[in-house]
Amino acid sequence: MKRPVTVADILNSVEFELLQHSLMQDDVSEGIQRLRTYQARARVELFGQAKSPSFEDVVNAQFNANEMMTTLIQVMNERLEALRQEVRQAAYLKQHASSTLDSQPNWEPLSNQPLDLNEAQIYAFEFALPASTEMSDRANALKALAESIQDASTDVEIEVRQSQLPIIGGLLHRIRRALHELVLFYTNKVVRRQAQVNDAYNVVLQELVALNRAQAQEIAQLRWHLQRLTAPGAQNDQASNG
């Protein structure tokens, strides 16, 4: 039987959507941490002591977790796509670099006076590889997520309190147990399917992070290469080296 919607449900939904919003503003690793916290909280709310969640509550919580993971993947994908654009741009430049520099219009100088750009300023833009700690943080966060997913994948176990009533206590306990088993049959079915979805998410996230790392390195190399080419005197250096 469906219970009527209350304003407490609405407030919970608003909080969830606000969390989703902040997830999109946050860094990915922090987002993963938030997702973990949400999962943990949902678990306590649903299966904590003296709780008897409805089938609908369990499914709702799982849908919410799915939503959050989808948001995370969407954010990561957006960033990756931006990186992919940069890689494409840089690859294009690398391919045409020599012809670009040769055929470039005389962009140099607004005047014969030296431009007030010194070497130090140029190298202020030098690309640094993403700090290794940042990468390992992300990897750790991901590992934590995988563990949390594994935790959540286990079947929900039956928890029926023993009735203290005389005579009919045993009977009540049996009826309760039968009802709970019925609920659990369906709940576990959903939980198992969710576990499969979680695994799929995990694989996608792992791939995205690996791809992210590879592309960041490639961009760093390409940038470094380009700055060498475009730095004042680069062409002279090339000529003398050649």
């Binding site: 962009w107 140099e108 607004l110 431009l115 750009l117 300023q121 140029i122 202020a124 833009f125």
Partner: peptide, 13 residues
């Protein structure tokens, strides 16, 4: 723009 970057490419055409 960073002034230095804009100057490095020769400003506006």
């Amino acid at each position: 723009y960073r002034r230095s970057a804009l100057l490095a490419i020769g400003g506006f055409e």
